[in-house]
Design a protein around this nucleic acid. Structure first.
Lengths: 243, 243
DNA sequence: ACTATCATACTTGTATACAAGTATGTAGTT
DNA sequence: AACTACATACTTGTATACAAGTATGATAGT
């Protein structure tokens, strides 16, 4: 059993009833994307099993998951950490834009009253999360916001793409929000306004507004990337201090 | 070790040096998509292990793969076969269209001489495959054709989506081509003309031609779906005869 | 000093063992 | 007849054992 007395980057309550393998994947993903585990590192199943005090079975499961996300590369001897370059992150948002544009084209042909209601609820949750300075909860609701939009069109393969990209997005947002909560607190109100714009675009079915919302949202990309590198620097410093 | 003396739907030489788990995933995928394993069936790891004469480890690996493709659904007790509805297949081609359109927008900004050369080679391979009535080889080259186009833009997340959708596409094409080889042999020349059009669109960077090529390609969808249902009927009859 | 060979300590892939939980059917009770 | 309790035969998740292959380094020979 994976002991939980150590420090983990991934919020443990989000995966309380997941299998050990999935939990490990989430944690390793965070460590890799945050830069805590540096790219080029070779991960050995045995060493990971010892480090996390579990057997190789869940470790193998975790590595398979991360490999399917292109975060690591399974080779003959060991799993090589690939990580994310800023190029990767840009390309990641290419896909998000592609998907969300497609989804919106479906949404304008639907009855959206339920969806708008769901999104409004999530938006209020996000406001509460800010009020209590809970970056993790904010991230959770942020991801949920986009997931709710995507699920609404009931499209199996779009959903599949979402499932495959969600973990990376979740990690990116988590790291970015934790960073912003400390240094750039007024970013959050901009994010809220942007999400309000999403809702507006869905409610009015006005493509112009949607384009504006997407544009604003993805203008944040550059910021998030910067946050990521800062986050990595912070982690590095943190670790150096411990030595 | 997985014995290979039984009848398999998936071409064994395509996965000669893959792990047993991956091979099992390919075979199970074919059986599910072809309808040989009916949707709603509950697969048990133990029973599969006995049936394929392997241990549970590779079976688990295979089931994880199929679950990530939404072909099965892992539940508390057993893996439920989901399979593909015609709706799923339509949605599958939505995504293909989305991806290939995106890719083409990148391609028109590139130097495409190498790509055109690669594609021409594959096209000639396809011609040879037809000449020798080799449906499997034809399918292989067909999939490779599209994969080559997608790889050419070097986009990590588009590549990731391709990796996640390729297996299903491969299965669909395989089943469809095997069917057409018997009954609709002149379909193949239409497919070749269509692929020639793809090359033309890439060479000339003329969006009109590309739209035409995509249009023609995805007009085949309806045919492929029909082929799939026919293929299922054939398999069903074949199995009934054996009883 | 340099190269070839081989022992060794790693690696993954697969098989098996064990633990914990769940559906099912049966026996006993009301 | 209907309902409860429990034994049983399943299920998955995790741990461990074993097999086969690979990188590394030491050792012997030149």
């Amino acid at each position: 059993m994976m002991s939980d007395d150590k420090e983990f980057l991934y919020p443990s309550k989000w995966i309380a009833n997941a299998s050990t393998g999935v939990r490990l994947a989430c944690e390793l993903r965070m460590r890799i994307i945050s830069g805590m585990v540096k790219k080029g590192t070779v991960l050995s199943e045995n060493k990971l099993a010892v480090e996390f005090e579990v057997s190789r079975s869940p470790i193998r499961e975790a590595l398979k998951i991360l490999a399917s996300e292109n975060i690591i590369r399974l080779e003959r001897m060991g799993a090589v950490v690939v990580g994310l370059t800023d190029q990767d992150i840009k390309e990641f948002y290419d896909v998000r834009l592609l998907i969300e544009t497609f989804v919106y084209e479906r949404i304008v042909q639907m009855d959206t009253s339920d969806l708008v209601s769901d999104l409004s609820k999530i938006l209020e949750m996000m406001e509460v999360a800010i009020k209590y300075r809970d970056a993790d909860e904010f991230s959770y609701q942020d991801v949920l916001f986009h997931e709710t939009i995507i699920r609404s069109i009931n499209h199996s393969y779009i959903q599949l793409i979402w499932n495959n990209t969600k973990p990376v997005m979740e990690s990116l947002i988590l790291l970015s929000m934790r960073m912003r909560l400390q240094e750039k607190h007024d970013d959050f109100s901009r994010i809220l306004t942007n999400h309000q714009l999403y809702i507006e675009a869905i409610k009015t079915k006005d493509r112009e507004i949607m384009i504006q919302a997407l544009h604003q949202n993805f203008d944040n990309v550059q910021n998030e990337v910067e946050d990521l590198w800062k986050s990595q620097q912070m982690l590095t410093k943190g670790r150096e201090q411990k030595r």
